Amino acid sequence: MPELTWLHAGHAPAVQAFELANRAYFAASVCDRGDDFLAQFTDRYNVLQAEQEAGICAFYVLVAEEDPVLL
């Protein structure tokens, strides 16, 4: 059963794969983040993780056993 969980560093590869796989879908609805977003994904992800650990923000991801990141 899918579970909403706090985003953590181990989710990075699955989140990046999700971003890549769904880029065209999102770009059709909202502004595309551009190639720089994907090229700098790891650095940006690390900044978000640091903000979350500092209590500035909270990020969640929907995960399931058969698919590491659903949403």
Rank of each mutant, 00 (worst) to 15 (best):
Q49V: 03
A9C: 04
A24G: 05
E66R: 05
L38F: 05
S29E: 13
Y25S: 12
E51I: 08
P13G: 01
G10K: 07
A50C: 09
H8V: 08
I56W: 04
Q40A: 15
V61G: 07
L38W: 00
A17G: 02
V69P: 05
D36N: 07
D36E: 15
N46Y: 07
H8L: 04
P68I: 09
D67T: 14
L62T: 04
N46G: 13
N22C: 01
R33P: 11
V30A: 02
A28F: 00
L38D: 03
F41Q: 06
Q49R: 06
D32R: 04
Y25R: 12
N46R: 14
E51L: 13
H11W: 01
F59H: 11
L62I: 08
F59L: 10
V15K: 01
F59Q: 08
A14D: 13
V47F: 09
P68T: 10
H11N: 00
F41M: 09
Q49S: 01
C31W: 11
C57Q: 10
E53H: 08
F18M: 04
F18S: 02
N46H: 14
A14H: 11
L48T: 07
A17E: 03
Q16G: 06
C31Q: 15
V69R: 05
G10D: 12
G10W: 08
E51M: 12
F37G: 01
I56Y: 03
V63Y: 03
G55K: 07
L20F: 10
L38K: 04
N22F: 00
Y25D: 11
Y25H: 15
E66V: 03
D67S: 13
G55R: 06
G55F: 08
A21T: 11
Q40D: 15
A14S: 13
E65K: 11
Q49W: 03
E51R: 14
Q16D: 09
D43E: 09
F18W: 05
D67R: 14
A12F: 07
R23G: 04
A12K: 09
D36S: 15
L38S: 05
P13V: 00
C57D: 10
F59N: 10
P68A: 15
F18K: 02
I56C: 02
A21I: 10
Q49A: 03
G34F: 10
V61R: 05
F37R: 00
V61T: 10
Q40I: 05
Y45M: 00
F37P: 00
F41T: 08
Y60V: 14
V47A: 15
E65A: 14
A21S: 14
F18V: 01
L71P: 04
F18D: 00
C31N: 13
A50F: 09
T42S: 15
A58D: 08
E53G: 07
Q40L: 13
Y60E: 10
F59A: 12
L62M: 07
A12T: 06
L20C: 13
D35I: 10
L7S: 03
D35H: 09
